[in-house]
């Protein structure tokens, strides 16, 4: 079973800082990392390969530095990595991104056959989760989003069963193969990579494709030109009138706060959310 995993290199948003005066991003402070959800997708692919054979192919779109994110996937256990990198891809929104990735998947599909596509639930620099379902639509295969467990893969029957996270629970859903899964972090723990994988990853050179390496590409659908959405403006969040400050020594502050909140003391009687 050949599994394709779409991954993205993202700035580590835990570390990224915004200059409050100019409102610009201090990107230098944010190291580039493999999107954490994608690491789980690669891990899941590696586990499925161990059971069902085949190989794990990683695909990403991004600048040349994104090769490092692909190497990270090789550490986790991916067999091959492809990077589509071209100025003409730049500025893509989710629609243009899914198109570009789809064109590369088509080529890989044609060359080696793809049975399953995996993506992370979303990328932490955008939080949209739109690219995965977009790719599935373009490939005309079913998308199964927010997967927390792959229950069963029936290669001969050409179908699989997964648990999909929904509000307050999950649903068990069956799909024909090929299909596309987007995975939640709960799906697995990313294993500590063995040393041979580390050595292989350090040497690994992903295949880099430009637009010209892909077939029948409609340039109008790529990058900024192919993106229906644009960022209109950015602004710092509005400052409201602000809080009424409770001043004084700690003891005084506690007394004043108690006086305010105990007016609603009935709220503290019955536990609202927990049952």
């Amino acid at each position: 079973m050949n599994i394709l995993v779409c991954i993205k290199q993202v700035p580590d948003t835990k570390i990224i800082k915004v200059n409050p005066k100019t409102n610009t991003l201090d990107r230098s402070s944010a190291p580039a990392i493999l999107n954490p959800y994608d690491a789980h997708a690669v891990e899941e692919a590696v586990r499925l390969r161990e059971i069902h054979g085949g190989k794990v192919i990683v695909l990403s779109m991004g600048p040349p530095q994104a090769r490092n994110a692909i190497r990270k996937c090789v550490e986790i256990g991916a067999d091959e990595g492809y990077l589509i990198s071209d100025r003409r891809f730049a500025g893509a929104d989710t629609l243009a991104t899914s198109y570009a990735l789809f064109k590369a998947i088509e080529k890989l599909q044609h060359e080696q056959g793809i049975d399953l596509v995996l993506c992370g639930k979303h990328a932490i620099d955008g939080d949209t989760g739109q690219v995965g379902p977009g790719i599935a639509r373009r490939m005309e295969i079913p998308p199964l989003t927010n997967v927390i467990k792959v229950e069963e893969v029936d290669l001969e029957g050409g179908k699989l069963k997964v648990r999909r996270k929904i509000e307050n629970g999950y649903e068990l859903i069956q799909s024909s193969l090929p299909c596309l899964l987007t995975v939640e972090k709960e799906i697995n723990e990313v294993a500590y990579s063995p040393l041979p994988n580390m050595l292989r990853a350090a040497r690994y050179e992903p295949t880099v494709w430009t637009v010209d390496d892909l077939d029948d590409v409609d340039i109008k659908q790529l990058g900024l030109k192919g993106s229906p959405t644009i960022v209109g403006k950015m602004w710092p969040p509005e400052k409201s009138s602000g809080a009424e400050m409770i001043e004084g020594e700690a003891k005084e502050q506690v007394e004043k706060l108690l006086a305010i909140t105990l007016e609603k003391r009935e709220l503290f009687g019955v536990k609202g959310g927990e049952k």
């Binding site: 500590y192 990579s193 063995p194 040393l195 041979p196 580390m198 050595l199």
Partner: peptide, 9 residues
């Protein structure tokens, strides 16, 4: 020996 699985080199 490293702290990784199969970690000898």
């Amino acid at each position: 020996r490293t702290d990784r699985p199969d970690g000898e080199v």
